[in-house]
Design a binder for these strands. Structure first.
Length: 857
RNA sequence: GCCCGAGUGGUGAAAUUGGUAGACACGAGGGACUUAAAAUCCCUUGACAGCGAUGUCGUGCCGGUUCGAGUCCGGCCUCGGGCACCA
């Protein structure tokens, strides 16, 4: 038996490929292109574990296939290296983040190189490289020019442990995603990107991405969270002067059709209305106390305590319902959020669960105004039947004119609310007690109400999004400096493009101040500068950009990594963009992938790129769990380093095993036994060289059964790779190997074709065998074998014979057997006869090339 | 609570438009080779009954459509993911 020495072989070929520039990207634009991209890693201090390369292996196999099929393939790698994890690591270990980053990248790269990826390392990028972040800053300035980047003074989310402001996307369950601390609200100056301006396009264009996974699109839709409804103006009146309208307070509602059912009005504890009217509020002390209590609660507590709603009635003020002039009591309650809509709502307890709960607790009137069904008691059968009142049974089809029917619906609604509170939830139905909306169905009533409000100037159609503008500044050191100078005379002035990159100063101390000031603020020689506009004294912006800045556009730079004049050459972008296939973790669905789509659309708007969406096809990679079923983590001590696996079993075994584990996007637990299986599979292939040793090149095509199987395998492997079904591709190759092993001799041609289709999975061992067979050119310069459609046709098939759908016999017949012959053979089968002997044959069903089913009674 | 997705052997899993359920692999059991072990090779391996041929049952549960359902429809249950007082 030959002994396969993976260590020697893998090293040999990795050096040779590197020396020959085998993976250098071709710029021959006459060929079709394919841009296949991994989400570039964040080089942490911990190095890669075996789960990380899973996606990289998949894209590598795909890239190699595409290259062998004649495409110009762009398959690059780089480093997303700015941000808190490195900075915290650096503080802890007392090394400068720059040094730590360089060290971590070195570790990561060494790990990746051992696995034998076909990356074009000449295009390697690093977000912390000034030549790279020059363009991150440039894009920021372009946004600033267009008012998309602006300074805001609204309170933001602050992580006391990371000592920085965060964006909505940086939270996980209301806590800091990075350190799991409870976050606070902190009023401070910050830079914000107006991503909400793009919310509608980000949502609508998801429909233009058919090759994105459904689940990820769904997550983005939920995150953007579009609601359509109306803004309605309520007058706020001081009870002492009922005829004097103080102000108009707007509310947002998705259900303007239920305006007649509003029985109270609520404002968020942070709402300015309260302090503006403090003199009108007779119980201001009580209200103020509630506001303080609510303010002391973190966002976490506020949502966790959602079982019991709290609030305080504001005495001395009422809100006037614009549709009927009714006076509504006003409450302050923390179930209404300042950050969504207008921070004030009309409450319709009969048709909203939350309002219902609150109204019950504080004894507020619950007034139903719509319902959809009636119940009838059948005395003889003693049953209660529920009948939905449907539009067709009603007059013209869309409006109930019958007063009696409406009054029955009203009685039913009242009955249901008294009986079972769960009936009180928002429901669609026919309206009553609603003035001009009486008799209409809710959906139409909504439109009628919007039209009415608009006409009277009391409101208008409105859209609200859950997505918030992107808080874009961090009060930390390790990030891109924001290229702005503050001048007392001129305000915030952009650093001129010619001065980019604005380099991050190299300093000894970069500890966060914790006060909301960036560590950069402590370096006077850096902070103090001239105003680019007036030349007077100016101070540099000291906040830095968040970790997600560079990753929002990095993929473009791979196309043109060394361009000094532009972010990307528009012609090169035209050829290579968009990314044809993007593979990475699902955890980026609502952060990186939304940010990148936003930046890309912006770059498109300013004419910097040609296409509106950056990623055509998107696939998420399933996690690899530890053997104990938990996540691999230092904390559990169950991390497996790919270096150890490569050392012991070889990179090819690792690659084949990770692709064979199960469906690509599913998470699976690591199994060393399974890995050993992959290694054995490769050894068997290596040892098969014996059987081919004496064969002449191109000689002996092999038996027809083997040829048939070979061509079926070529077809299946090619198709499965394109669909990311690597597990079944490998299984097909295993079936072929099992069959080849049973042969005394293997044709050289068959063996070589098989090696080529295996090569993307196991590049080292196949290249070694390939060269050992006397081939001087790399196996990766071969073109992907074509299967012969004639050869994969089966002449004989196993025809299944069923009786009443149950398998009773299988008989080998000609593949193109006629219906008549098939039925005849089926009925003559001894096994079948046993089951139809004493029965009447009702019919016989024939499915060509598959089966005969005899139906008997 | 709301929105997605998924439930198949001891395990990871396969299964064109509805057409042989469990491919392929791991594990387990048995055997060959060996002084012995490892490695390798061969056989068995969904459950139940049977010496066997074979039969019955079987894709989370209940029901339906169909000659025929893992696959389609209706109603549940469980698990995973996302969002979470978003008006």
């Amino acid at each position: 038996m030959l002994n396969y020495n993976h260590k020697e072989v893998e090293k040999k070929w990795q050096e040779k490929w590197e020396k020959d520039g085998l993976y250098k990207t071709s710029e021959d634009t006459t060929k079709p292109k394919y841009f296949i991209l991994d989400m570039f890693p964040y080089p942490s201090g911990e190095g890669l574990h075996v789960g990380h390369p899973k996606g990289y292996i998949a894209t590598d196999i795909f890239a190699r296939l595409k290259k062998m099929q004649g495409y110009n393939v762009l398959h690059p790698m780089g480093w997303d290296a700015f941000g808190l994890p490195t900075e915290n690591y650096a503080l802890k270990h007392k090394v400068h983040p720059r040094i730590a980053t360089a060290k971590n990248i070195d570790t990561f790269k060494k790990q990746l190189l051992k696995i034998g990826f076909s990356y074009d390392w000449e295009r390697e990028i690093n977000t912390t490289d000034p030549e790279f972040y020059k363009w991150t800053q440039w894009a920021f300035l372009k946004m600033f020019e267009r008012g998309l980047a602006f300074e805001s003074f609204e309170p933001i989310i602050w992580c006391p442990s990371c000592k920085t402001g965060l964006s909505m996307e940086d939270l996980e369950g209301g806590r800091c995603e990075r350190c799991d601390s409870e976050v606070e609200r902190k009023p401070m100056r910050q830079w914000v990107l107006r991503i909400t301006d793009y919310a509608d396009r980000l949502l609508a264009d998801l429909d233009k991405l058919p090759d994105w996974e459904h689940s990820i699109k769904e997550m983005q839709r939920n995150w953007i969270g579009k609601s359509t409804g109306a803004i309605v103006k309520f007058a706020i009146v001081d009870c002492r002067f009922p005829n004097e309208k103080k102000i108009e307070q707007e509310i947002f509602t998705t259900r303007p059709d239920t305006l007649f059912g509003a029985t109270y009005f609520v404002v968020a504890p942070e709402h300015p209305l309260i302090s503006d009217f403090r003199l009108s509020i007779s119980n201001f002390n009580e209200v103020e106390e509630y506001m303080k209590k609510a303010g002391a609660k973190s966002d976490m507590e506020r949502t966790e305590l959602n079982k019991e709603k709290t609030g305080v009635k504001i005495e001395g003020l009422v809100a006037i319902n614009p549709v009927n002039g009714e006076e509504l009591p006003i409450f302050v309650a923390d179930y209404v959020m300042m950050g969504y809509g207008t921070g004030a709502i009309m409450a319709v307890p009969a048709h909203d669960e939350r309002d219902f709960e609150f109204a019950k607790k504080y004894n507020i009137k619950i007034k139903p105004i719509l319902h959809s069904y009636l119940e009838f008691w059948n005395e003889s059968e003693k049953t209660l039947t529920r009948r939905t009142v449907n539009p067709t049974s009603v007059n013209s089809g869309n409006k109930i004119e019958d007063e009696e029917l409406l009054s029955l619906l009203k009685q039913q609604a009242q009955k249901d609310i008294n009986k079972d509170p769960s009936h009180a939830i928002t429901d669609y139905g026919w309206l009553f007690d609603s003035g001009f909306l009486n008799g209409y169905y809710a959906i139409e009533a909504k439109e009628k109400m919007i039209a009415w409000l608009t006409e009277k100037g009391l409101g208008k159609r409105a859209v609200n999004y859950k997505i918030k503008d992107w808080v874009f500044s961090r009060q930390r050191y390790w990030g891109e400096p924001i290229p702005i100078v503050h001048c007392e005379k001129c305000g915030a002035i952009p650093v001129p493009e010619s001065e980019l990159p604005l380099r991050l100063p190299d300093v000894e101390h970069y500890e966060p101040s914790g006060t909301g000031e960036s560590p950069l603020a402590t370096i006077p020689e850096w902070v103090n500068t001239k105003c680019p506009k007036c030349g007077g004294a100016g101070k540099r912006e000291t906040n830095t950009m968040p970790q997600w800045a560079g990753s929002s556009w990095y993929y473009l730079r791979f196309i043109d990594p060394k361009n000094n004049n532009a972010l990307i050459d528009i012609k090169k972008d035209k050829y290579w963009s968009p990314v044809d296939f993007y593979v990475g973790g699902a955890e980026h669905a609502t952060r990186h992938l939304i940010y990148a789509r936003f930046w890309h659309k912006f770059l498109f708007d300013i004419g910097a790129v040609n296409y509106e969406e950056p990623f055509t096809r998107l696939q998420h990679v399933g996690l690899i769990m530890a053997e104990d079923g938990r996540k691999m983590s230092k904390r559990w001590g169950n991390v497996i380093n790919p270096n150890d696996i490569v050392e012991k079993y070889g990179a090819d075994a690792l690659r084949v095993y990770e692709m064979f584990m199960g469906p690509f996007s599913q998470s699976v637990a690591w199994s060393t036994n399974g890995l050993v299986g992959a290694r054995k599979f490769l050894e068997r292939i290596y040892n098969m060289q014996h059987a081919t040793r004496n064969m002449q090149h191109g000689g002996g095509a092999g038996t027809s059964a083997i040829l048939n199987l070979l061509h079926k395998t070529i077809k299946k492997v090619g198709e499965d790779i394109l669909e990311f079904k690597f597990n079944t591709a490998i299984s097909a190759m295993m079936i072929l190997v099992n069959a080849l092993e049973k042969e005394k001799e293997i044709s050289r041609d068959t063996y070589e074709k098989f090696l080529i289709i295996l090569a993307p999975f196991a590049p080292h061992i196949t290249e070694e065998i390939w060269s050992g067979l006397g081939n001087s050119e790399s196996i990766f310069k071969q073109s992907w074998p074509k299967y012969d459609p004639e050869l994969i046709k089966d002449e004989k098939i196993q025809m299944v014979i069923q009786v009443n759908g149950k398998l009773r016999d299988t008989i080998e017949v000609d593949a193109n057997i006629s219906e008549e012959d098939a039925k005849k053979i089926a009925l003559e089968s001894e096994k079948v006869k046993k089951f139809i002997d004493d029965k009447e044959i009702m019919k016989v069903i024939f499915v060509g090339g598959k089966l005969v089913n005899v139906v008997v009674k």
